[in-house]
Design a protein around this nucleic acid. Structure first.
Lengths: 150, 150
DNA sequence: ATTCATGCAAATCGTTTGCAACCCA
DNA sequence: TGGGTTGCAAACGATTTGCATGAAT
């Protein structure tokens, strides 16, 4: 489960920040596109459909705000723009991304399974891991199937 | 072990590319700074000491070339510039980076230890992993010690 | 002689910022 | 009212590119 519009209103008020239509509109677009990893530009274009007066700078500022409130996460999918996804409340560590090097599709893996590695890091490097970013590159099922046919 | 200057000469000739002093100078700086994750700007400034006539664009072009030849790898350390490190011949999968969120220091972990996770990914998602990028965020030993004292 | 590589400056692109007008509290 | 917010345009910083010159084969 992700955050709701009502949660956003509360969080903003708690911090003495203002509840504006732009901020709600940006969150709304993110909620309507869960799992899509939208870029600021894409978010901007989508928001503009219903709120044509919004500026790109406001979208950037809103995303920075939502990121600092841990409502969204910024991710890097190697296409030289930032991308954002909603934080899932129950996740303590971030999930992983599978990037197909043929078709470019991005999937997610809920499994974390890095505990033993993090334990090893603590022992060998005396480094306490709090979070991680993991990207896997490879071939997705569909592309593998297409490959077979050739 | 990383690549040698001689290896570079051979690889360039094999591909019909020219062996220029600039290309050799860039590789030389990388070899003299193993483990340092230099940015293009830093590489440029270091190369300039011995080769003052080199241009920044040439450094960028050389790094793209070395990357395509798998002599170097581009990494992203969240400081909005690219960083490069030498490929280690014996590594099939990339090593991981530990980033201290207090002092910013970057360490490396040779251990891979992702085989079971990659197997899981194959089973559940039918996705064949060929490589990965893993960053761990946390507190390094020294910062933890400093923290204790307060 | 040919082809590729270089240096320079200009262009690009994503992102940030300054500022006057604006709007929520 | 008053301070946070917005939209716009200008500024920014990293990276790329066009082009005429220069160097390697």
């Amino acid at each position: 489960m992700s955050i709701s519009q009502d949660d956003l209103v509360c969080l903003l008020k708690e911090k003495g920040l203002k509840v504006t239509s732009q901020r709600q509109a940006v969150l709304n677009v993110l909620l309507e596109n869960e799992g899509k990893h939208l870029s600021p530009e894409e978010i901007y274009n989508t928001v503009k459909v219903k709120n044509p007066e919004i500026g790109l700078a406001t979208v950037y500022r809103t995303l920075i705000l939502l990121d600092s409130m841990e409502i969204v996460y910024k991710i890097d999918l190697d296409d030289n723009c930032a991308r954002y996804e909603l934080n899932r409340k129950k996740e303590d560590h971030r999930h992983h991304h599978l990037i197909c090097t043929i078709c470019g599709k991005v999937q997610e893996v809920e499994e974390d399974l890095l505990d033993s590695l993090e334990l090893e890091i603590k022992k060998k490097k005396n480094f306490t891991v709090h979070n991680h970013r993991v990207k896997f590159y490879g071939i997705c099922g569909e592309c593998a199937k297409k490959d077979e046919r050739d």
